[in-house]
C-alpha cells in the first residue's frame, strides 16, 4: 500500500526526526532544507548538555538512516498554495510537491550579537559568541582565543532584553553557559571564569549537578548582575563593567576573553511562512499553535503542523519528542 507524500520544511534535528518517523509509518516524507547539509544548528555544536554527549554522534544517529526519506538540500521555497486537497509547495529548483499534510520545522536563529554594540562583538578582538566557542571546541582553532587567563560569560545577550526587542527567555542558554564555562575551564585550568547572570534558569534532570560541578569542580564564579559595557585597551585586553547586585557594588574586571550567550530568535523564514500560510505568531515572533497545551504541534489551518524550535526555544530531547509526537499527529490526520 503506497501511502501519501508528506512535505517537511526544515532539515534540522526536528525535521529529520519527523521524516524518519513518518517513513517508519509507511509515508513518503519529502524533507526540504535551505542549507547545503542536513542537521541545522546541531552541526555547529560540539557537545550537548547535561552529560556532554557529542553532537556529532547525535547527528550521525539522526542522519545515518534516511532510507525512504526523499531529502533535498540547497532548496528555497518559492511559494505554497493551499487547495482543497492540501498544499502545493513550489521550490526554486523548479520542482513542486503535492502534499495533504505540511510540516514546518523551520527552527530558530541566534541573536546577532552585533546588535548589542556595547558588548563589542566584531569591534573588539576578544569578544566571541557561544556559537563561536562551540566551533572552537570542535576545531580548537580561533585566533581570538590565546591561552586566556580571565574569561567572562555574559548570559542573556539579546534575551529578556526589551531594548534588544526580545523579551522572552531563550531557555537553553543558562545551561549552555554553565556547560561551556566548565568545558573551557577544562581546556585552560589556570583561567578564572566568570558568569554574569540575571537569574539562572536551569531545570531538568542532572542540570543541578552540572551547575554544582561548575562551582565545586571548576570554580566558576557566578556573579548576579548584567554587564553594562565593555571597552578595550591598546593591548586588546577587555574591561568589563558590571554590577554585582548581591553586593550592590559596581565592578570592573580586566579580561582576555568574553563569551556572549546569544539568545534564540525565530528563524528568518518564520515571518514569511506566517504570512504565506496564515499562521499566527506571538509577540516574540514564534509560531502560535492551535492549542498551546493540548495541540502544541498543530497549526490553526487544517493539514498544517509546526514543530521544534519554530514554536519557541527547546532543548534537543524536547525537540526529538515533539518530532515524534508530530509524526503521530500527521498520521492521525491522514488516516
Amino acid at each position: 500500500m503506497a501511502k501519501d507524500n508528506v512535505v517537511v520544511i526544515g532539515g534540522g534535528p526536528c525535521g529529520i526526526e519527523v521524516s524518519r518517523n513518518l517513513r517508519d509509518m509507511g509515508y513518503t516524507p519529502i524533507l526540504l532544507e535551505q542549507q547545503s547539509e542536513l542537521g541545522g544548528h546541531l552541526r555547529r555544536w560540539d557537545r550537548l548538555f547535561p552529560e556532554g554527549v557529542e553532537a556529532r554522534k547525535v547527528l550521525k544517529e539522526l542522519t545515518g538512516d534516511l532510507k525512504g526519506v526523499k531529502w533535498f538540500t540547497d532548496v528555497n521555497i518559492e511559494s505554497i498554495q493551499k487547495s482543497r486537497k492540501g498544499y502545493t509547495v513550489n521550490v526554486d529548483t523548479g520542482m513542486s510537491f503535492e502534499t495533504k499534510a505540511l510540516v514546518l520545522t523551520t527552527g530558530f536563529k541566534l541573536f546577532p550579537a552585533e546588535n548589542k554594540q556595547e558588548y563589542g562583538y566584531n569591534i573588539y578582538e576578544r569578544v566571541i559568541t557561544n556559537a563561536d566557542l562551540e566551533q572552537f571546541f570542535k576545531t580548537r582553532k580561533d585566533s581570538r582565543i590565546q591561552n586566556p587567563k580571565t574569561i567572562g560569560f555574559v548570559h542573556c545577550v539579546g534575551s529578556r532584553d526589551e531594548k534588544a526587542c526580545n523579551r522572552q527567555c531563550s531557555k537553553v542558554c543558562c545551561a549552555t553557559a554553565v556547560k561551556q564555562a566548565s568545558e573551557i575551564k577544562e581546556l585552560f585550568p589556570d583561567a578564572t571564569v566568570y558568569c554574569f547572570y540575571m537569574d539562572l534558569r536551569l531545570f531538568g534532570r542532572s542540570y543541578e549537578d552540572m551547575y554544582l560541578n561548575a562551582q565545586r569542580k571548576y570554580g566558576v564564579r557566578f556573579i548576579r548582575g548584567r554587564v553594562s559595557e565593555v571597552s578595550e585597551d591598546i593591548d586588546g585586553k577587555l574591561y568589563v563593567k558590571a554590577e554585582d547586585t548581591l553586593l550592590g557594588k559596581p565592578m570592573k574586571i580586566k579580561m582576555d576573553l568574553l563569551v556572549l550567550m546569544t539568545g534564540i530568535l525565530p528563524g528568518d523564514s518564520t515571518q514569511p511562512f506566517s504570512e504565506m500560510l496564515k499562521i499566527p505568531t506571538g509577540e516574540d515572533g514564534f509560531f502560535t499553535p492551535k492549542d498551546t497545551i493540548l495541540e502544541p504541534c498543530v497549526a490553526k489551518e487544517s493539514g498544517l503542523f509546526i514543530a521544534g524550535a519554530c514554536t519557541g526555544p527547546k532543548t534537543i530531547p524536547e525537540t526529538i519528542s515533539e518530532a515524534r509526537a508530530t509524526a503521530i499527529q500527521v498520521h492521525k490526520y491522514l488516516s
Binding site: 554594540q117 556595547e118 569591534i123 573588539y124 559595557e229 571597552s231 578595550e232
Partner: peptide, 9 residues
C-alpha cells in the same frame, strides 16, 4: 560612546 564603542574608535 562607551555603549557604541565604534564611534570612539
Amino acid at each position: 560612546s562607551s555603549l557604541t564603542p565604534v564611534t570612539g574608535r
